[in-house]
């Protein structure tokens, strides 16, 4: 980062600080509202106009976790997100290495295919997937979501890791090849250890996307493999909505995502634009 030779005028600085505080408020306020609503009793939550100062209670949390089975759905989400991420990394890393190091025909088409996977609406695959899965009796299983989430996780992992492998100096490859090492050896023992940051970032992405996903979960699960977002949505039935419970569930869903997103915040733009903007 460079320094300005002459700092901005004090008045300009004041405006700058004010505007930044405004941006922070704009971004953070809904989260504040989510958490405070989750700490209200149903009677308080249905106060009109809404109250800002009240005695917080954790009743919603104990109710959704112990009575409504949100805990189980959180575990389902965790199992699915972790498994699909592990699979994506396992399959994606060698592919990324190949894309970074080898020249071959059809490479451009592969890139194109991955980009399309990033952009296509999940409904396009949800329709046939539902019919197929129903036919082979796998509806409402963890496996189905683990597999279908690979359609967006695998391209992301391959994408980010390819970038990472490219940044590993090629000299290392050449030296190892002169020693007679096989490509697999070079990948495993030399390049992969140096690509750990990329693997970590892409794992975080894969986890966040899987954890956040709703449409496939809605269409392909019922009870057994129901994920937490699908559970949160099912509270939305009926007339007097249990706002406190909905917001408590939402808070529980959002916490891990926010932690991971903040960890990977430096790489978020690159990941979301598939590397087009560094």
């Amino acid at each position: 980062m460079r320094n300005a030779q002459a700092g901005p005028a004090p008045r300009g600085m004041g405006v700058q600080i004010l505007l930044m505080l405004l941006v922070i408020l704009f971004c953070v306020f809904p989260f504040y509202w989510m958490v405070t609503t989750s700490l209200k009793t149903q009677i308080l939550a249905l106060e009109s106009p809404p109250v800002w100062i009240f005695e917080p209670t954790l009743a919603n949390y104990s109710e959704v976790l112990l009575k409504d089975g949100v805990g189980t759905t959180l575990i389902n989400s965790l199992i699915i997100a972790v498994s699909t991420t592990l699979l994506a990394v396992l399959l994606g890393c060698p592919a990324a290495y190949a894309l970074a190091r080898f020249e071959f025909r059809g490479k451009r088409d592969l890139w194109f295919w991955f980009i399309t996977n990033r952009m296509v609406s999940p409904i396009v695959l949800a329709l046939p997937f539902f019919l197929i899965v129903r036919k082979i009796g796998l509806l409402d299983t963890h496996l189905v979501l683990i597999l279908i989430y690979l359609t967006f996780n695998l391209p992301i992992v391959i994408w980010i890791c390819t970038d990472q492998f490219r940044s590993v100096p090629y000299d290392l490859n050449e030296a190892a090849m002169l020693e007679g090492a096989s490509q697999w050896r070079i990948f495993r023992s030399i390049c992969l250890p140096l690509a750990v940051p990329g693997v970590a970032v892409s794992s975080i992405f894969s986890f966040i996307f899987s954890w956040n996903e709703l449409m496939y979960a809605l269409v392909l699960t019922r009870n057994n493999a129901k994920t937490a977002p699908a559970m949160a949505v099912s509270f939305m039935e009926g007339y007097n909505l249990p706002y406190g419970k909905i917001m408590a569930t939402s808070t529980l869903i959002v916490i891990p995502v926010i932690v991971f997103a903040l960890i990977a915040s430096k790489h978020l733009v690159r990941g979301l634009t598939m590397g087009a903007v560094k």
Partner: peptide, 26 residues
């Protein structure tokens, strides 16, 4: 403050889209 702003910007887009909708409802 700049770092803080940048970190807050990360929150909305990372948040579970379904939760954003529920929050909107509320």
């Amino acid at each position: 403050l700049k770092t803080l702003t940048r970190l807050s910007l990360v929150l909305p887009m990372a948040t579970t889209y379904a939760v954003v909708g529920l929050l909107g409802q509320v």
